[in-house]
Write a protein that binds this DNA or RNA. Structure first.
Lengths: 337, 337
DNA sequence: CCTATAACCGGGAGCGCTTCCAGTATTTCG
DNA sequence: CGAAATACTGGAAGCGCTCCCGGTTATAGG
């Protein structure tokens, strides 16, 4: 039960010596560089296998100026917001594409000023090869740092009022339009909306989509209330909506959580869904299947968002150019509309 | 709008030159080492400020053999399980203590064999200074690697049938006993349990706690069914329980999610809660407040678990010894019992 | 068979930092 | 005031790798 003596890992020099070649030659076979004879390659490969050699990441990083690490930074004032399953999904997506590379993922929850300055240092000391940023507000000092650092950086979700060079976002506008058009197609004419919080890009874009679809259909918004993306917020919003526009016959809600709250309030108020009023949500979270009735909603794949961000970052690190991408959304029909 | 030319970061040599001292002297002031005169220190500090110098992490890592990075590894066959809010809470806890250090967090979702071998390499190449492991099964090859690597390693949640040298866990056993004793104190005598999945440490420990409390009270288990920790699983379990033991008057459920399912089935079956049957859950997740009636449950702080794991790891890295810790749990009284 | 070309090889200079050590300046104290 | 202790200092040797470059050997071509 004695702890195995942590035998020191062999170095490249030792491998080279055992293989009877120079360190340069050994390095070449490891990096699959050209100009290495068959005999040399085999000798080195044998030595590597026999000694269980693995190149030291740090030394390699110092020599190549590449750390083999990418960062995912979530900049929020409230660290609790990270608990939103949204980020877990992002991470699953990111990890799945990283898994086929030899890059690792550094996770930075930069909430406090201290956290942000740690992140700044990390970038300036070239501690990572690239970075993915989420939930950045337009005035976050990180934006400046990131662009100054001259480091590949992709944004997840386009920040409002600020167009970064590279970002990946879901088609919030298109999805909202889809949802609203569906309501219109159902023959509804008094369509309200519970919009997301003002100033959040997703909230704004979904609201624009709603408006555009209304205009196209020759309708005017029939009640607009702001919610905070939570279930409780959706419930509250629905109550004020019922007060101000008791005759509404449909509502487009900018998130499933808010839709769930709205649904609850509607049935409590004696309105049948979708009979009296049709409801459609946004996100297609698990909760959408468990509401009563099940929620018709706009699907966005968060894992796909994470994957696409990562692919883009890898391309940038490899020196390729890329253009920002908007991921499609689609309508999922269930019982509520 | 031209991208700022990413000016190369100054090196220690340049700082030393500007300060008119040797590199060694400059290094000493940066590392707050002794034997540096006041004049030298001030000259170097001024140079650092003027040039905006920041030590290069990689070079320092190579010289000190310390990377300044710790890993959090979640080893699951199903990457989706990472989406459980449990891990997000862990990460929030971990990050909050890391924030006061200059260590960064590497997140490894090691699901596939590929992911696991990446992790193995990371450890063997000394890519991290220490590691926190979660959700390890006893036969995971990682266990061997970790102990062989001779690297500080703390487990989150003691794996079943395997006692690692350092771990942090919630007091699952004590919590379950508390819950069951509460039921006993309420005068209930026909107490069933929906236990967690067999072979999971948490599930087993909570079950043992239930049994111990029953024995202490001179009662015998009145129905034991296994659930899978999900709401649906809890509902199914409750149904079979109602079939086999229709006269039960209480049930201890090994998770809030399962309890929510059980609650639903009970009211559907016409049993009043807590009138006919009292229910207590485990975890104190958000859902516990939203069930009908609100769920009496055992609280465990997952963030605290993350924090404690991190503190322990930091201590180990610093060369201090530590002993494993069990975090207390407590009963939260709500309407269901 | 001899030269032009290409394939291969190892020496060595980094990458940017820490740290040991021998040497010099400064105290301290008998 | 001189010797022993002490505080500083900079040179230099790493840490383990990559990669340029001049030199050597194999291949081709005339």
């Amino acid at each position: 039960m004695a702890a195995a003596t942590p035998r020191r890992q062999p170095t490249l020099d030792e491998v080279a010596e055992r293989a009877g070649v120079s360190r340069s030659a050994a390095s070449r076979v490891i990096n699959q560089a050209p100009h290495v004879s068959r005999a040399t390659r085999e000798a080195v490969e044998r030595a590597i296998k026999e000694m269980g050699y693995l190149p030291n990441r740090t030394a390699r990083a110092l020599a190549t100026r590449q750390t083999g690490i990418v960062a995912l930074a979530v900049s929020h004032d409230d660290p609790e917001l990270f608990a939103d399953p949204f980020y877990a999904q992002i991470i699953v997506g990111v990890s799945s594409v990283l898994e086929d590379t030899d890059l690792h993922l550094l996770l930075c929850l930069a909430s406090s000023g201290r956290g942000r300055s740690r992140l700044t240092n990390l970038l300036r000391t070239r501690g990572v090869d690239g970075i993915m940023l989420m939930a950045m507000s337009e005035d976050d000092p990180l934006n400046r740092i990131v662009s100054q650092a001259g480091l590949p950086a992709v944004y997840g979700g386009r920040p409002s009022h600020f167009e970064p060079q590279w970002y990946v976002d879901s088609d919030n506008l298109g999805g909202a339009r889809l949802a609203t058009e569906h309501l219109v197609g159902l023959g509804r004419t008094r369509i309200a909306t519970i919009r997301g919080v003002l100033g959040s890009e997703a909230g704004d874009a979904r609201y624009r989509g709603y408006r555009e679809a209304m205009v196209m259909a020759g309708l005017t918004p029939h009640g607009v209330v702001e919610g905070d993306f939570t279930e409780a917020g959706g419930a509250a919003a629905m109550r004020t909506l019922l007060d101000s526009h008791p005759d509404l016959d449909a509502v487009f809600t900018a998130s499933d959580n808010m839709a769930a709250g709205a649904l609850r309030v509607l049935t409590e108020a004696g309105r049948s869904v979708p009979g009296d009023v049709a409801v459609v949500g946004f996100d297609n979270l698990g909760i959408a299947e468990r509401t009563d009735p099940p929620l018709t909603t706009v699907h966005q794949s968060i894992q796909a968002l994470g994957k696409e961000m990562t692919r883009m970052l890898l391309a940038l690190i490899a020196g390729q150019d890329r253009t920002s991408v908007i991921l499609p959304t689609r309508l999922v029909l269930r019982g509520s509309a």
